[in-house]
C-alpha cells in the first residue's frame, strides 16, 4: 500500500528528529514545563538534581526548561508539548491536562501536600520608603493608589492575587460575597494596566515606573527586589493573604512513552528532599518542610480549599470563567 511506503521513511525521519533518548541510555533528557516565576529556581534545582542523579545512578540527566504563563503552558502540553513533568502555578491548569487523559486522575494525591513541594503567597512590592503607606489590602482601594496586577484571565498568579483580595474582604467583620466583590471591584478600579503575565506586570512596575504597588508572588517580589535594586523597592507583607500551592506532577502518557517515568518521579521527589527544600527557600518559596529555615514573614493564610472558594474548579467557574465575577466587575465599570 502506498500509505506504508510513506509511513516507514516518515517514521525513520521522526526517530532521527526525536530528541528524547531512551531510558536505558546513560543520557536522559527531561522536559520540565513550568510557569514564569520559577526560571531561577529550576535553573538551580536542575543542576543540583543532575549532580544527585549522577552520583546515585551514574546517568547524566539534562533537564530542559520551558517557561510561560501557566495556562498557556498547560495548553501547550494538552496540544502535544512533550513534557515529562509539569510544575505549574495552580492545580486547575494541571486538572485541565488530566481531563484530556494525559495524567491519571487523582494526580494531586501522588505526592505529599497536594503535590506542592513548596508554597508561596501574594505580597506587595512598593516603591522605596513606601510613600503611599501601603500596609494591608484595604490600603489598595484608597483613591489615588495605583495598583499593578496581571490579568486573572491569562495569568495564574493574577488569579491568586484576585482570590487573596477576595479572601481578605470576606474575612473582614461583616464580610460576605457581595462585599468582597465590591472590594475587589474597587481594587481593580485602581489598576491602570493589565499585563497578560506576572513578568509583564513586574516589568511595567519596575521598568516603566507605573503604579504605587505591585501585587506579586512572594518569590517574584523578592527576586525583583534583589535583581533590580533593593534601593528602589520594598516588600510589604500584608496581615493575611492566600496560600498559593503550585503543584507538580509527572505527565504519565509522555513519561511512559519516553521511558523516563523513574527519573521523572525521582526528579519531583527530590523537590521534597532537604536539598530541594533549601533551594526552594533560597529562591523565596516557602518550603513545606518546617525544619528548613526561611526568612519569610509569618502571616495568616487562607486556602483555595476553604469553604469560601471550594477548590479550583469551583473558584474558576465563579470568578474567572466568562460571565464570572471578574467579567461582572469589568462589565459594570463604564
Amino acid at each position: 500500500m502506498k500509505f506504508k511506503q510513506i509511513a516507514l521513511p516518515l517514521a525513520a525521519i521522526a526517530m532521527a528528529l526525536s530528541t528524547a533518548t531512551a531510558a536505558l541510555a546513560a543520557n536522559v533528557t527531561l522536559l520540565n514545563v513550568s510557569y514564569d516565576p520559577t526560571r531561577e529556581l529550576y535553573t538551580d534545582f536542575n543542576k543540583s538534581f543532575a549532580a544527585y542523579w549522577k552520583s546515585k545512578t551514574g546517568d547524566t540527566v539534562t533537564v530542559k526548561q520551558s517557561h510561560g504563563g501557566s495556562g498557556k503552558q498547560a495548553r501547550s502540553v494538552i496540544d502535544g508539548l512533550q513534557a515529562d513533568v509539569v510544575t505549574l502555578a495552580l492545580a486547575y491548569d494541571i486538572d485541565a491536562i488530566a481531563e484530556k487523559g494525559l495524567i491519571k486522575t487523582g494526580w494531586q494525591k501522588e505526592l505529599p501536600h497536594n503535590s506542592s513541594p513548596y508554597t508561596s503567597t501574594i505580597v506587595f512590592l512598593v516603591r522605596k520608603g513606601n510613600p503611599k503607606k501601603i500596609k494591608n489590602w484595604d490600603d489598595l482601594i484608597k483613591p489615588g493608589v495605583s495598583v499593578i496586577t496581571p490579568n486573572p484571565k491569562t495569568s495564574g498568579g493574577a488569579r491568586w492575587n484576585y482570590l487573596a483580595a477576595w479572601a481578605f474582604a470576606l474575612h473582614q467583620p461583616g464580610g460576605n460575597d457581595a462585599k468582597a466583590k465590591e472590594f475587589v471591584a474597587k481594587l481593580f478600579k485602581n489598576v491602570p494596566v493589565l499585563d497578560s503575565g506576572a513578568r509583564g506586570s513586574t516589568n511595567t512596575f519596575v521598568q516603566r515606573g507605573l503604579g504605587d504597588v505591585l501585587l506579586a508572588w512572594e518569590n517574584e517580589a523578592f527576586l525583583a527586589l534583589n535583581e533590580l535594586g533593593p534601593d528602589k523597592f520594598d516588600v510589604v507583607t500584608p496581615s493575611e493573604s492566600i496560600l498559593a500551592e503550585p503543584p507538580v506532577t509527572v505527565i504519565d502518557k509522555v513519561a511512559d512513552k519516553h521511558g523516563t517515568r523513574r527519573v521523572a518521579e525521582e526528579y519531583l521527589k527530590y523537590l521534597y528532599s532537604d536539598e530541594g527544600q533549601k533551594i526552594a527557600a533560597k529562591h523565596y518559596y516557602r518550603p513545606i518542610n518546617t525544619k528548613i529555615p526561611t526568612k519569610l514573614a509569618k502571616l495568616k493564610l487562607y486556602t483555595i480549599d476553604d469553604k469560601a472558594f471550594g477548590g479550583w474548579q469551583k473558584a474558576q467557574k465563579t470568578h474567572f470563567a466568562d460571565g464570572g465575577t471578574f467579567d461582572q466587575i469589568y462589565g459594570s465599570k463604564k
Binding site: G69, G71, K72, A74, R75, I78, A96, N151, K153, T154, S196, F320, A321, D322
Partner: peptide, 9 residues
C-alpha cells in the same frame, strides 16, 4: 483570542 485559549476555550 489568546485569553480564550488560556482558558482552554
Amino acid at each position: 483570542i489568546i485569553t480564550k485559549l488560556e482558558q482552554f476555550d
